[in-house]
Amino acid sequence: MGVFENKFQDNVVVASLDKLLGWARSTSPWFFQFGLACCAIEMMATAASRHDLMRIGMIPRSSPRQADVMIVAGTVTMKMSLRVKKLYEQMANPKYVIAMGSCATSGGPYWQHGYHVLKGVDLVVPVDVYVPGCPPRPESLIEGLLKLQEKIQSERPLTRKTA
Protein backbone atom coordinates (compact mmCIF):
# COMPACT_ATOMS: atom_id res chain seq x y z
CA MET A 1 0.00 0.00 0.00
CA GLY A 2 2.50 2.54 -1.16
CA VAL A 3 3.94 4.88 1.44
CA PHE A 4 2.16 3.21 4.33
CA GLU A 5 3.61 -0.20 3.60
CA ASN A 6 5.32 -1.75 6.63
CA LYS A 7 4.98 1.48 8.63
CA PHE A 8 2.71 -0.10 11.21
CA GLN A 9 2.93 -3.22 13.33
CA ASP A 10 1.32 -6.58 12.57
CA ASN A 11 -2.45 -6.94 12.46
CA VAL A 12 -2.92 -3.47 11.05
CA VAL A 13 -4.47 -3.25 7.60
CA VAL A 14 -4.39 -0.10 5.58
CA ALA A 15 -7.20 0.59 3.14
CA SER A 16 -9.08 3.53 1.72
CA LEU A 17 -12.33 4.22 3.57
CA ASP A 18 -14.31 3.84 0.35
CA LYS A 19 -12.97 0.34 -0.16
CA LEU A 20 -13.48 -0.57 3.45
CA LEU A 21 -17.10 0.54 3.35
CA GLY A 22 -17.60 -1.36 0.09
CA TRP A 23 -16.09 -4.46 1.65
CA ALA A 24 -18.36 -4.20 4.71
CA ARG A 25 -21.49 -3.59 2.69
CA SER A 26 -20.86 -6.18 0.01
CA THR A 27 -20.08 -9.04 2.36
CA SER A 28 -23.26 -8.81 4.41
CA PRO A 29 -26.13 -7.78 2.18
CA TRP A 30 -29.08 -8.94 4.24
CA PHE A 31 -32.02 -9.62 1.99
CA PHE A 32 -35.65 -8.84 2.46
CA GLN A 33 -37.62 -12.03 2.87
CA PHE A 34 -40.72 -11.93 0.74
CA GLY A 35 -41.83 -14.05 -2.18
CA LEU A 36 -44.54 -13.41 -4.72
CA ALA A 37 -44.78 -16.54 -6.87
CA CYS A 38 -42.92 -19.68 -7.92
CA CYS A 39 -39.57 -17.85 -7.93
CA ALA A 40 -39.94 -17.63 -4.16
CA ILE A 41 -39.59 -21.42 -3.98
CA GLU A 42 -36.23 -21.20 -5.73
CA MET A 43 -35.24 -18.32 -3.46
CA MET A 44 -36.10 -20.47 -0.45
CA ALA A 45 -34.08 -23.33 -1.91
CA THR A 46 -31.18 -20.94 -2.38
CA ALA A 47 -31.36 -19.86 1.22
CA ALA A 48 -31.67 -23.44 2.49
CA SER A 49 -28.80 -25.71 3.43
CA ARG A 50 -27.79 -27.11 0.04
CA HIS A 51 -26.96 -23.75 -1.54
CA ASP A 52 -26.63 -21.91 1.75
CA LEU A 53 -26.79 -18.18 1.16
CA MET A 54 -25.29 -17.54 4.56
CA ARG A 55 -21.83 -18.46 3.27
CA ILE A 56 -21.89 -15.27 1.18
CA GLY A 57 -23.17 -13.31 4.15
CA MET A 58 -26.84 -13.17 3.31
CA ILE A 59 -29.48 -13.59 5.97
CA PRO A 60 -33.22 -13.17 5.38
CA ARG A 61 -34.78 -10.30 7.29
CA SER A 62 -38.51 -10.03 7.73
CA SER A 63 -38.57 -6.27 8.08
CA PRO A 64 -37.69 -3.80 5.32
CA ARG A 65 -36.00 -1.60 7.95
CA GLN A 66 -33.32 -4.22 8.51
CA ALA A 67 -32.79 -5.28 4.91
CA ASP A 68 -30.26 -4.08 2.35
CA VAL A 69 -31.35 -6.10 -0.67
CA MET A 70 -34.84 -6.68 -1.97
CA ILE A 71 -35.14 -9.80 -4.09
CA VAL A 72 -38.34 -9.40 -6.10
CA ALA A 73 -39.07 -13.09 -6.57
CA GLY A 74 -42.09 -13.57 -8.75
CA THR A 75 -44.95 -12.00 -10.64
CA VAL A 76 -45.73 -8.47 -9.56
CA THR A 77 -49.37 -7.58 -10.14
CA MET A 78 -50.57 -4.01 -10.47
CA LYS A 79 -52.16 -4.30 -7.05
CA MET A 80 -48.91 -5.57 -5.55
CA SER A 81 -46.72 -3.04 -7.37
CA LEU A 82 -47.86 -0.23 -5.07
CA ARG A 83 -46.98 -2.38 -2.07
CA VAL A 84 -43.59 -3.31 -3.51
CA LYS A 85 -42.88 0.37 -4.02
CA LYS A 86 -43.93 1.16 -0.46
CA LEU A 87 -41.71 -1.63 0.92
CA TYR A 88 -38.79 -0.35 -1.12
CA GLU A 89 -39.31 3.13 0.27
CA GLN A 90 -39.30 1.73 3.80
CA MET A 91 -35.82 0.23 3.38
CA ALA A 92 -32.86 2.18 4.70
CA ASN A 93 -30.14 3.44 2.38
CA PRO A 94 -28.05 2.03 0.81
CA LYS A 95 -30.57 -0.33 -0.76
CA TYR A 96 -30.43 -2.63 -3.73
CA VAL A 97 -33.00 -4.51 -5.80
CA ILE A 98 -32.67 -7.79 -7.64
CA ALA A 99 -35.34 -8.62 -10.20
CA MET A 100 -35.51 -12.40 -10.07
CA GLY A 101 -37.05 -14.32 -12.96
CA SER A 102 -38.69 -13.21 -16.18
CA CYS A 103 -41.88 -11.92 -14.51
CA ALA A 104 -40.00 -9.40 -12.38
CA THR A 105 -37.73 -8.34 -15.25
CA SER A 106 -40.31 -7.93 -18.02
CA GLY A 107 -43.68 -9.40 -17.14
CA GLY A 108 -42.56 -12.78 -18.45
CA PRO A 109 -45.37 -15.01 -19.72
CA TYR A 110 -47.86 -12.26 -18.88
CA TRP A 111 -46.19 -9.80 -21.24
CA GLN A 112 -48.90 -9.82 -23.86
CA HIS A 113 -52.18 -10.76 -22.22
CA GLY A 114 -51.74 -10.24 -18.50
CA TYR A 115 -53.83 -7.12 -18.08
CA HIS A 116 -53.12 -6.99 -14.35
CA VAL A 117 -49.38 -7.76 -14.34
CA LEU A 118 -46.68 -5.15 -14.00
CA LYS A 119 -44.40 -5.39 -17.04
CA GLY A 120 -41.16 -5.41 -15.15
CA VAL A 121 -40.52 -4.27 -11.61
CA ASP A 122 -38.16 -1.57 -12.92
CA LEU A 123 -41.28 0.46 -13.69
CA VAL A 124 -41.71 1.14 -9.97
CA VAL A 125 -38.32 0.65 -8.30
CA PRO A 126 -34.71 0.96 -9.61
CA VAL A 127 -33.25 -2.48 -10.30
CA ASP A 128 -29.56 -3.30 -9.85
CA VAL A 129 -29.36 -6.87 -11.12
CA TYR A 130 -31.68 -8.81 -13.40
CA VAL A 131 -31.64 -12.58 -13.06
CA PRO A 132 -33.22 -14.32 -16.06
CA GLY A 133 -35.00 -17.66 -15.85
CA CYS A 134 -38.47 -18.99 -15.27
CA PRO A 135 -37.80 -19.55 -12.45
CA PRO A 136 -34.00 -19.18 -12.23
CA ARG A 137 -32.17 -22.05 -10.59
CA PRO A 138 -30.45 -21.31 -7.27
CA GLU A 139 -27.11 -21.19 -9.11
CA SER A 140 -28.42 -18.37 -11.30
CA LEU A 141 -29.66 -16.44 -8.29
CA ILE A 142 -26.33 -16.86 -6.52
CA GLU A 143 -24.58 -15.65 -9.68
CA GLY A 144 -26.82 -12.59 -9.59
CA LEU A 145 -26.08 -12.01 -5.92
CA LEU A 146 -22.34 -12.26 -6.52
CA LYS A 147 -22.68 -9.74 -9.35
CA LEU A 148 -24.51 -7.47 -6.93
CA GLN A 149 -21.70 -7.87 -4.41
CA GLU A 150 -19.21 -6.86 -7.12
CA LYS A 151 -21.33 -3.83 -7.84
CA ILE A 152 -21.52 -2.84 -4.19
CA GLN A 153 -17.75 -3.31 -3.80
CA SER A 154 -17.07 -1.09 -6.80
CA GLU A 155 -19.12 1.77 -5.38
CA ARG A 156 -17.27 4.77 -3.91
CA PRO A 157 -19.75 6.16 -1.40
CA LEU A 158 -17.38 8.78 0.00
CA THR A 159 -15.88 9.98 -3.26
CA ARG A 160 -17.39 13.21 -4.45
CA LYS A 161 -19.17 12.70 -7.72
CA THR A 162 -18.17 15.06 -10.48
CA ALA A 163 -20.48 15.76 -13.33
Binding site: K79, Y115, V124
Partner: peptide, 27 residues
Protein backbone atom coordinates in the same frame (compact mmCIF):
# COMPACT_ATOMS: atom_id res chain seq x y z
CA UNK B 1 -59.21 -9.75 -6.51
CA UNK B 2 -58.49 -6.49 -8.30
CA UNK B 3 -57.83 -3.26 -6.45
CA UNK B 4 -60.87 -1.17 -5.57
CA UNK B 5 -59.92 1.62 -7.97
CA UNK B 6 -59.56 -0.64 -11.02
CA UNK B 7 -61.43 0.44 -14.12
CA UNK B 8 -63.42 -1.98 -16.26
CA UNK B 9 -64.44 -5.61 -16.13
CA UNK B 10 -61.56 -7.77 -17.34
CA UNK B 11 -63.32 -10.94 -18.46
CA UNK B 12 -65.86 -9.17 -20.66
CA UNK B 13 -65.31 -9.52 -24.39
CA UNK B 14 -65.26 -5.75 -24.90
CA UNK B 15 -62.71 -5.10 -22.14
CA UNK B 16 -60.13 -2.42 -22.82
CA UNK B 17 -57.05 -2.42 -20.60
CA UNK B 18 -56.59 0.90 -18.84
CA UNK B 19 -53.60 2.89 -20.05
CA UNK B 20 -52.10 3.84 -16.70
CA UNK B 21 -52.62 2.63 -13.17
CA UNK B 22 -51.44 5.06 -10.47
CA UNK B 23 -49.06 6.58 -12.98
CA UNK B 24 -47.63 3.19 -14.02
CA UNK B 25 -47.85 2.77 -17.76
CA UNK B 26 -49.52 -0.41 -19.01
CA UNK B 27 -47.93 -1.11 -22.40
Amino acid sequence: LLPDDWEGWPLRKDYEVQETYHGIVVP
